[in-house]
Design a protein around this nucleic acid. Structure first.
Length: 286
DNA sequence: GACCAGGGTAACT
DNA sequence: AGTTACCATGGT
């Protein structure tokens, strides 16, 4: 029986905001401030109690090797918030709506496939397809007394997938896109280690070779799966909130993206996440 | 039944 | 280079 690992005095962290802000999809809420998270090649039961985080059945070594990085716990979010507010003071109130958001450090391949699935889908549906894929092709994992969970499938596991199989996971027209991504990654046309060395613009171009990966999906992969925190994905909600705040008219997504890059610089990705949550909850109209 | 969802592609002007 | 129909699926 392994002990629980408890991390105290955690600032700028809210487990609900972190998991439900639309950056990751392979998790389940099992109680108040308590979740089962599948990531980093393992499954985790985590609960937040005030400023403390309880990592169930987790020793210090596992925390240091996996969860400290995954949850981005080493980063000082005070500096990030100050920088964003300095760029535009109107962001102060928006950040305070969800002060506990952090950008996770997720697996590249899982992020790539998940955001291919995300196109023209709502978050609950994305979660369902991710779960279906994980149960059909991913490795089952268990830990402690948790019910059975499945890891997101690896690229090797998805090599066995067929168009019909993926469609049966409710991926619809995205099935061939997923297969093309698996093909490009497994044949070496797109290589994670190379992407990590490339300038962001070059890495974006490389990702967009994959069918079903356009500007927005590529930016999500860069931001959530490759640590490029300066990228600013513009989806329907970001388009609305940015047009509302800065343009007051219909504006092309690439123009919005460039504007945000200039305004928020290396912290544009964080600014995007605070704005995304605000836009959705405020129901910003078109 | 129309419209929309963390869009992208292909086929048009 | 800039539009537009279409793509599965589930919810409102």
């Amino acid at each position: 029986m392994i002990d629980n690992y408890i991390l105290e005095n955690v600032n700028n962290f809210d487990i609900n905001e972190v998991l439900t802000c639309g950056q990751c999809f392979n998790f389940t809420e099992i109680g108040s401030n308590e979740y089962i998270v599948t990531a980093m090649g393992s499954v985790l039961r985590i609960k937040q109690e005030g400023s403390s985080l309880v990592f169930y059945d987790t020793n210090e070594d596992e925390f240091n090797k996996k969860w400290n990085l995954y949850f981005d716990l080493e980063r000082d979010y005070e500096i990030i918030k100050d920088s964003i507010v300095k760029a535009d003071p109107r962001l102060e109130d928006i950040i305070e709506k969800h002060p506990g958001i952090r950008i996770l450090n997720q697996d590249f391949f899982e992020t790539l496939i998940s955001f291919i699935i995300s196109q023209n889908k709502q978050i609950p549906q994305i979660k369902q397809v991710v779960r279906n894929l994980s149960e059909m092709y991913g490795t089952p994992v268990s830990k402690g007394e948790m019910p059975g969970a499945h890891l997101f499938p690896t690229q090797e596991e998805l090599l066995r997938a067929t168009d019909e199989g993926i469609r049966s996971c409710k991926a619809g027209f995205r099935a061939p896109y997923i297969l093309d991504a698996v093909d490009k990654v497994s044949t070496g046309a797109v290589v994670e280690q190379d992407l990590k060395k490339m300038p962001t613009d070059e890495a974006r171009k490389s990702l967009m070779q994959i069918k079903g990966v356009g500007e927005k999906v590529a930016n999500c992969v860069l931001l959530f799966g490759l640590g490029r925190r300066e990228t600013f994905p513009v989806d329907v909600w970001m388009k609305r909130i940015m047009e509302h705040m800065y343009f007051h008219k219909d504006t092309p997504k690439d123009e919005i993206e460039a504007f945000a890059g200039n305004l928020f610089g290396e912290n544009a990705g964080y600014a995007q996440q605070y704005l995304f949550m605000y836009a959705r909850e405020a129901g910003v109209a078109r």
